[in-house]
Design a protein around this nucleic acid. Structure first.
Length: 473
RNA sequence: GUCCCCAUCGUCUAGUGGCCUAGGACGUCGGCCUUUCACGCCGGUAACGCGGGUUCGAACCCCGCUGGGGACGCCA
């Protein structure tokens, strides 16, 4: 057991974003790789957005992703008690001070700065005023170094240098005494024993501020790793427009969580030329220090390809199990068993995701409501009606109704008419499934059963005859 | 605007000064296989943003430019 501890700290604003999921994944992989702890902290101090429902959504997302965390999730809102004394201590020790500047005053200065196209920085008016606890309404500000450099040592980016002159004495406690984010993060990370802070690149600018808190409080400074952002194909922040932005949508797209893990891990990280990884391989090889520094673009086509590879790698039994919920969702009456496993085996290498599969197999549960027009036009010829009826006759007499027998019947008809299998198989496929796409025709008929196969073929025979008559007339 | 980060095929990447006439994967295009759809197989297309250095030698090191992204709250 190593002493590495990492954490994922989402704020429950509605959904687990794909970018957030990747951050969580990298933390999880790194923790598992090191044999350390993966902690979860819900940053729920924003009363507006942090609803129990939103928290549930995040947790569900994490579970779906298969990212199991160690211990109970830490609710930031329940830890206010540990922050107050820390702030008092900082004031006492001179690392922070009370500031009585009003919001209006500050807003005016900010606007003035913007008007002059200057960067706004608090002017440190109260820094040396020595306001006591009874100075009235006030905030607490951190005394940042006035000059010099603050260097963030980052595992991915190397040393990132900030000029102290760019940073002002920011607020660590609001006028209602509640601590602000950049302060709380440090307090909580330290309290939770976090050794490696792995988070999105958008937090890089917060890091120098936090570094000063660590120093002022005398805390050990953790290692930092700022991972690049995930963008949509247009280079902008990933959003719903790009296909999906929340992990729940990934499930709705019929994607497997292991495929998502594989894809997201490979997005910004690599291990030679390897594309496909089991979770064990990911854990074995992943190191956050090897994550690329540049931003990435989400490619759903490649995600789907990986998903397909995962489907191909499964046993039919496992696939059946994964497919079942999607089937039930569609209202099909079906249960796990040999029949479903055979079905899974037959569609396994034909579709890229579970949704396509579930949608496709509809004809096993409901009679096709119509025939695909283009398919009918292409395959229903003058003798199709007769051939279909012959097939139906042959199948009706078949016992047992199995693939070998079905193949015998169909091949017999093919030979008799001196035609090709394709010319006969396609009309049957249309008859049975409504379209010209399905698994092998013998397997499909066997899976469907004799009664339904024969009935559908006879019905199509009638349709073919009528179709032909209409063409003539 | 200021600060910070980034920069190899359309996309994800390999590459850490000579092994690069830049490799792999997805996509795309062409072909084979084939009862449809797929799977599979074969082949093609396509990149070191630009300009200066450093060096015998630069995709790799340095500087500038350009381009993209992010951050600039009493939000997290």
């Amino acid at each position: 057991m190593s002493d590495v501890s990492v954490r994922f700290a989402p704020s429950p604003t509605g959904s687990l974003h794909i970018g957030g999921a990747r951050t969580a994944l990298y933390n999880w992989l790194y923790a598992r790789h090191c044999g350390g702890k993966f902690l979860l902290r819900i940053e729920d101090t924003d009363k507006e957005r942090s609803t129990p429902e939103n928290i549930r959504i995040i947790l569900d997302g994490m579970r779906w992703m298969g990212l199991d965390w160690d211990g109970e999730p830490v609710m930031q809102s329940e830890r206010i008690g540990i922050h107050r004394p820390l702030i008092e201590r900082l004031i006492d020790e001179g690392g922070a001070y009370r500031c009585t500047c009003t919001k209006d005053e500050l807003d005016a200065k900010r606007e003035a700065a913007q008007a002059e196209k200057r960067k706004y920085l608090y002017d440190r008016k109260c820094r040396d005023a020595g306001h006591g606890p009874d100075c009235g309404e006030h905030v607490v500000r951190l005394k940042m170094p006035v000059e010099g450099e603050i260097v963030v040592k980052d595992l991915i980016l190397g040393d990132v240098t900030f000029n102290a002159a760019e940073l002002d004495d920011w607020i660590i406690a609001r006028s209602d005494h509640s601590p602000t984010y950049n302060f709380v993060v440090v307090a909580d990370d330290h309290d939770m024993g976090v050794t490696h802070v792995i988070r999105g690149n958008d937090h890089l600018n917060n890091t120098p501020k936090q570094l000063v808190v660590y120093q002022a409080l005398g805390f050990d400074i953790p290692a930092f790793a700022h991972i690049p952002m995930v963008h949509g194909p247009d280079g902008k922040k990933l959003s719903k427009r790009h296909g999906a932005s929340a992990v729940t949508e990934l499930r709705e797209m019929g994607l497997l969580p292991e495929a998502v893990r594989n894809y997201l891990a490979r997005l910004g990280w690599s291990h030679g030329d390897q594309e496909l990884f089991t979770d064990a391989e990911l854990i074995e090889h992943f190191d956050v220090a090897n994550v690329n520094a540049s931003a990435t673009v989400m490619d759903f086509a490649k995600l789907e390809w990986i998903n397909q590879q995962k489907i191909l790698a499964m046993t039919p039994d496992a696939l059946a199990e994964r497919l079942l919920p999607y089937l039930i969702e569609r209202g099909y009456s079906v249960e796990a068993g040999p029949w479903l496993t055979t079905l899974a085996a037959n569609i396994q290498e034909r579709f890229k995701n579970l949704v396509e599969m579930a949608d496709h197999v509809r004809y096993f549960f409901e009679e096709p409501s119509a025939y695909d027009e283009a398919a009918v036009k292409k395959w229903f010829k003058a003798d199709t009606g007769a051939i279909l009826n012959e097939i139906a006759d042959g199948l009706e007499a078949l016992d047992p109704f199995d693939e070998a027998g079905i193949e015998g019947v169909i091949n017999g008809v093919v030979e008799k008419h001196e035609t090709k299998l394709g010319k006969v198989a396609q009309p049957i496929r249309i008859a049975v499934t409504g379209s010209s796409i399905s698994p092998g025709i013998f397997e499909t008929l066997a899976l469907l059963d004799k009664e339904r196969s024969v009935a559908r073929i006879r019905k199509a025979a009638a349709h073919a005859t009528q179709h032909q008559a209409e063409k003539q007339g």
